[in-house]
Structures are given as structure tokens and as C-alpha cells.
């Protein structure tokens, strides 16, 4: 049994808790996402995000977010939900 660090989905460091909390809210909390789209900085202040984390979320750059300890799936889904809200994608619903 190997205890090597996984390549893709790594342990989310405690230092990134607030950052991941913000991405989780963007993914799963419709009200938070709406507030973020209205005033992103105010929404991030609600969650106590530090300046560097807030700047990384605003830039939306995946590599920077991952380097700060963000979980890849949360980055992926938060980004997708924000893009869907900003420019509604056409879906075929089954």
C-alpha cells in the first residue's frame, strides 16, 4: 500500500479552508452565487477570504487556485456554475 501523494486530488490543506469554502458556496449555494455576481468582493468578505485568495478567485486561474490548496473539483464546478450564470448555456434537458 503506497502512501504517496496522489497526483490529481490531494489533501485540501487547512490553510485553504476558507478558499475551498468559497468555491463550495459558488458551486452549491445559489444565493451566495447571486451575491457574488452582484459584488464579488463583498461576498468573499462574508466568508473571511484573505486578499490573496480573493484575488485568485477573481482571476479564476486554475493553476493559481490549485497552488493555494483549492480542490480541483471545486475549482471546476464553481467556474462552470459562474459561467452558466453569466452567459446561459443552451442545454438539451432529458
Amino acid at each position: 500500500m503506497s502512501a504517496a501523494e496522489p497526483l490529481h486530488y490531494r489533501f485540501p490543506p487547512a490553510s485553504a479552508y476558507r478558499l475551498n469554502r468559497c468555491l463550495f458556496a459558488l458551486k452549491s449555494d445559489d444565493d451566495f452565487r447571486a451575491r457574488f455576481l452582484q459584488d464579488a468582493r463583498a461576498a468573499m468578505r462574508e466568508l473571511g477570504l484573505g486578499d490573496d485568495d480573493a484575488a485568485a478567485v477573481l482571476r479564476g486561474d486554475r493553476d493559481t487556485l490549485l497552488a493555494r490548496g483549492a480542490h480541483p473539483y471545486l475549482v471546476f464546478m464553481a467556474d462552470l456554475r459562474l459561467r452558466m450564470a453569466r452567459e446561459p448555456v443552451t442545454f438539451e434537458y432529458f
Binding site: 448555456v89 443552451t90 432529458f94
Partner: peptide, 10 residues
């Protein structure tokens, strides 16, 4: 599979 965007092969 539930909501298909244009990126997915129908």
C-alpha cells in the same frame, strides 16, 4: 447525460 450542452455528442 441529464442536461446536454453542445460540447457533448448527442
Amino acid at each position: 447525460l441529464l442536461a446536454r450542452p453542445g460540447t457533448e455528442d448527442r
